[in-house]
């Protein structure tokens, strides 16, 4: 097939004729007199002693590096720039909370009572200042809301707006400026620690975990060693001090995987504050129900019997969820611990 009918009928015939003489001229040229040169060259290729077409891999690599030395230099420079860029401290603005400000007339006792009855107002973070404008006296409220989602803040604001006599409600975001290397900034909200404890003694495992966790800025973890019925070592990792820690670095989400022979323990911590999961004054059953609901939102199906609840003297509630997958080759324990007040 030379040309289809469609192609033949197109206006290309015009173009075809324009260059016809040139194509004919080119076609008529004859270079066959040079074929003998090429023929000799090809025949000589086989007799050349120095010529080895099938170079070994190392030789090929050497040749490649010597030929592409500029490419290599550029690649190394590029990597160095990327490495340097990752270590350059970057300034991050972090939203650490919001402040809500509103005013209410001192005479409006009903509004003041309703404000006082709002469950989300933490008295320790609330300041009330009396102000006089002309003959009217106002109470100026300032409340700091730490680590609340924008959705929560809007909800609280809506509740305030529903109260009569409250005027000039304002929200101020509270930002904190921090400097950290780029890679650390990227990893700031999440850390992963992996340890292979197969041939390690208890002390070595303890030291290794301690080192890796400290490097990741996580200190609030305790490690216990127990033996199971088969006499195998079981490493138990308990995140502690999750809520209300003064040091921010102790309050991070992290995943920790410890492999010990056929056993593997996986610990994933999640931090909940009292706004998103308020367990204060609730019974164990109510807590379980709330946790199940909360975990369901995150795609985890949890049964009430999987949850273990412990309470300490200070009123902290520790919820432990353990799921054990036992197969012939490997025993895997997934544990999620929540500590809430």
């Amino acid at each position: 097939m030379k040309l289809s009918n469609l192609f033949k009928n197109s206006n290309m015939n015009d173009n075809l004729n324009t260059g016809k003489k040139y194509w004919q001229e080119l076609k008529n040229r004859n270079h066959e007199n040079t074929f003998s040169k090429v023929e000799n060259w090809v025949n000589n290729l086989n007799s050349e002693k120095t010529y080895n077409f099938k170079l070994n891999r190392i030789q090929n690599m050497k040749n490649y590096f010597s030929i592409n030395k500029f490419k290599l230099v550029y690649s190394i420079l590029l990597l160095a720039v990327v490495f340097a860029a990752c270590n350059v401290p970057v300034t991050q603005n972090e939203l650490i909370g919001n402040a809500i400000n509103w005013k209410v007339s001192k005479q409006s006792t009903e509004a003041i009572d309703r404000i006082n009855s709002l469950p989300w107002i933490d008295k320790s973070k609330l300041s009330v200042v009396e102000q006089t404008e002309g003959d009217k006296t106002f109470l100026d409220y300032n409340l700091v809301l730490e680590a609340k989602s924008q959705e929560d803040v809007q909800k609280y604001m809506q509740q305030l707006q529903e109260i009569k006599d409250i005027a000039a409600i304002q929200i101020f975001p509270l930002n904190q400026t921090t400097k950290r290397p780029l890679y650390a900034a990227a990893l700031h909200s999440f850390f992963r620690v992996d340890v292979d404890a197969t041939h390690m003694s208890d002390a070595e495992v303890n030291a290794e975990l301690d080192r890796q966790l400290k490097e990741a800025g996580i200190e609030a973890v305790t490690i216990d060693f127990k033996k199971n019925a088969q006499g195998e070592r079981m490493i138990e990792i308990h995140p502690t001090g999750i809520i209300g820690m003064e040091d921010e670095t102790k309050n991070k989400d992290f995943e920790l995987t410890v492999k010990d022979g056929n056993n593997e323990q996986f610990v994933k911590t999640r931090h909940k504050n009292d706004a998103s999961l308020n367990l204060e004054g609730k019974t164990d059953d109510e807590i379980k129900k709330a946790i199940i609901e909360d975990m369901k939102k995150n795609g985890n199906v949890v049964k009430p019997e999987d949850l273990k609840i412990e309470r300490d003297a200070e009123g902290h509630v520790k919820v432990e969820f353990t799921k054990v997958n036992d197969s012939k080759e490997r025993k895997m324990e997934n544990k999620i611990e929540l500590k809430v007040k």
């Binding site: 194509w23 001229e25 080119l26 290729l45 010529y51 010597s66």
Partner: peptide, 26 residues
């Protein structure tokens, strides 16, 4: 570096090709 240093060069055949005016246009 010439990439083809590991074997002999082909003899010059294209220098012999004489270009006519018409071919140059094409």
């Amino acid at each position: 570096i010439d990439e083809n240093t590991n074997h002999s060069r082909m003899p010059e055949i294209f220098h012999e090709i004489e270009q006519t005016e018409k071919n140059n246009i094409l």
